[in-house]
Amino acid sequence: MPNFKTSSIRILAASTFVFGSLMAVQAPAFAGAGHSDAHGSEAAFDIGAPGNISDVRRTIRITMEDNFYDPEKIIVRGGETVRFLVENKGEFVHEFNIGTAAMHAGHQEEMMMMVEHGVLDVDKIHMDKMEMDMGNGMTMKHDDPNSVLLEPGKTAEVIWTFPKAAELEFACNVPGHYESGMVGKVRLQ
C-alpha cells in the first residue's frame, strides 16, 4: 500500500515539474477575443449565464487542492441558479471555471500567456499586471462571471444559472493543471 504522504509529495513534485516545463514552452499565437472577453462571447450563451443572488436556492462548496476538486462532480437542474463558494486549499494558484471542453482548451492558451507575461507564478497572482496589453487592446484581466482564479488560502464565489441542456465541466486552466486531472463534470438533470 502506497504511503499517502509520499504519494502527495510525488504528485506535488510532478505538478511543479509540469508547470515549470510548460512555462518554458512557447505558446502559439492567440487570435480572437481578449482574456476578459473570451468567455463572454456567443459561446458563453451555451453554458448558461451569470445568476442573481435572489434566485439562488442552494450553495455548493468547491474545494480546490493540488490538483483536484472536492467534489469532482456536481449535479444541477437545467435553469437552476447555484451559488458556488470556492476555496483554494492547495499550495498553487488554481481556477474554478465553468465551460465546455473546447472553451477550456482555448482558455488554457490564454492562461499560458499569463504565465509567460509574469502575471501568474506557481503560487501568486500579480494583480498589477492583469491590465497588461497582450496586443490589439486585449488584457489579461481575469474577471469572467463563470470563473475565479485564486491564490492559496483564498476564497470567492460564483453565482451561475445553468442552461437547460449542455455538456459542461469545471476546470482549472492554469498550465498543466487540466492535464493533471483538475477537471470535474457538471451533470444537468
Rank of each mutant, 00 (worst) to 15 (best):
170 F>W: 10
131 E>P: 01
136 N>Y: 15
90 G>E: 01
176 G>D: 01
71 P>M: 04
119 V>F: 09
154 K>P: 07
147 S>K: 09
109 E>D: 08
179 E>K: 12
110 E>Q: 10
176 G>L: 02
139 T>C: 04
150 L>E: 05
136 N>D: 15
132 M>E: 02
69 Y>A: 00
155 T>Y: 10
128 D>V: 09
110 E>P: 01
132 M>D: 02
98 I>F: 14
170 F>T: 05
169 E>I: 07
70 D>L: 11
145 P>W: 10
179 E>N: 10
81 T>K: 09
143 D>M: 01
85 L>A: 15
98 I>D: 13
134 M>H: 08
75 I>N: 13
132 M>H: 03
148 V>D: 09
81 T>Y: 13
68 F>M: 13
175 P>A: 02
168 L>A: 12
108 Q>V: 08
127 M>L: 10
76 V>N: 09
98 I>Q: 14
94 H>N: 02
128 D>Q: 08
101 A>G: 04
104 H>K: 02
122 V>G: 10
127 M>R: 06
94 H>Y: 00
159 I>N: 11
134 M>D: 06
114 M>R: 03
70 D>Q: 13
89 K>E: 04
125 I>H: 00
75 I>T: 14
94 H>M: 01
89 K>N: 06
86 V>F: 15
79 G>P: 14
136 N>F: 15
90 G>D: 03
128 D>K: 09
82 V>C: 14
103 M>F: 05
140 M>P: 07
69 Y>N: 06
99 G>W: 07
121 D>K: 11
112 M>P: 00
105 A>I: 15
125 I>D: 00
79 G>S: 12
110 E>Y: 12
